[in-house]
Design a protein around this nucleic acid. Sequence first.
DNA 1: GTTTGCGATTAACCTCGATCATCACGATTC
DNA 2: GAATCGTGATGATCGAGGTTAATCGCAAAC
Lengths: 249, 249
Amino acid sequence: MLTDRFLRDRRGVSLEAGERARLEAAISETKTVDARKIIARAGEWLDQSTLLVEGIMSRYLDDRNGLRQLVAIHLPGDFVDLHAYPLKRLDHDVGTMTPATIAIVPHVELDAITEQMPELTRKLWFATLLDAAIHRAWLFRLGRLDAIGRVAHFFCETNVRLLSAGLSDGRQFNLGLTQADVAEICGLTTVHVNRVVRHLREEGLCIFRNGKVEILDAPKLARRGQFDPSYLYIDDPSSPPPPDQRPRR
Amino acid sequence: MLTDRFLRDRRGVSLEAGERARLEAAISETKTVDARKIIARAGEWLDQSTLLVEGIMSRYLDDRNGLRQLVAIHLPGDFVDLHAYPLKRLDHDVGTMTPATIAIVPHVELDAITEQMPELTRKLWFATLLDAAIHRAWLFRLGRLDAIGRVAHFFCETNVRLLSAGLSDGRQFNLGLTQADVAEICGLTTVHVNRVVRHLREEGLCIFRNGKVEILDAPKLARRGQFDPSYLYIDDPSSPPPPDQRPRR
DNA sequence: GTTTGCGATTAACCTCGATCATCACGATTC
DNA sequence: GAATCGTGATGATCGAGGTTAATCGCAAAC
């Protein structure tokens, strides 16, 4: 199903069968889009949102000189611009990075869901806040890490996200991004990303070639990027479960 | 009322009288908190959220060396950690920067609201996504602006936000932050923030002294920080209104 | 009046990453 | 086959901002 990967392995908020069916029914159409196409522009009024089925998409802000800062990348299973539902108007552009398959969900369908299914509504809300949590990790990356740490952190994050989408084996994954893309994500120049990539390779941490990432030493890479995956809210039996009783304070 | 400033002047999502009353009724208690106190820690399971009535609060991530990256600052009227309602567990710490008055909203009350009031639910959702939009602006700041631009952008943003909260006259406002705080926000060192502040003063853009900001040349300051307030979604008669009919694509 | 301590300020030095330039390689295209 | 273009690789140079450290102003505490 198109929504199979949506909120997969997210503790406490994975969809029930009925919820998944309801969301699936809300899809008005699916289509394929070429790489490097703009799906929605900043300031546009939107009446639909985009669920990413296949491929990689991004959200970005332009600066005055035509340079871009990516604020998010989206992987299969992500409800890319669900936040356009409450916001109605976006503050940034949304586009594809690779060829992509997307499913369209009209906002009138989401109106119906919010009227009738409060539990599913909370899960959709959760999905948008997960994006916000990733924004925060990216803020940490840009504000507190050096160039090597930023790229290391990005690779770690993407590995974990793709793993939960079933698109990485935990050691190797295909990203389809260029060094220039990584530069726009990490707030660096392509030249310096190239040097960072070489450094990571020479240190035996990971190899980035032809858009593919091979992680050689995951613990060391995570340490270098100060990466802790808890902000991704992925179901992990080894982390402490929610308290039986809601905690009081 | 305690919620008077919440979603004030936000086009299309300002609260109706009944909604405001319902939210007000959801408040279980209010309290005052000293400056520099932690309200919630990363990883904690929460069953309540915090509405900021007076004072300034922040959210931040710690790095390995004990340095912090602020990911948000909150002003009176902000529902600081409303995102804890869908997320249940935070990925960051929440604390006060100045002495503050806060109102507590138990999540069980929010359960009731999401069951009974879908329109108000969408507005609460909107409020959390507004925070995400501000995260994105901060990402732009850290990724694409130099030190002077970052501080200029931050002052512009804060001025607009305080203006809509009725706490700035558009030219001057009291922030109660130190240069070290600004450094943690802008991903700089205190030493360099000091240099930037001097530069902004000498260029006649703005004066930052004793936690107070005086804006001398708002247009120039905005240009220097590439600041465009549309991401704050504040009601502004001069910006284009939503289309009468929902747009189709 | 002295002490303490926080915050602001300034200087000296150095490093990381930007900038500019060139070159290699492969895939298209004509 | 030549030309073009996107992507990656690498060297030389430079400057913004980090680091370290010293000093100052001022308010609170004693």
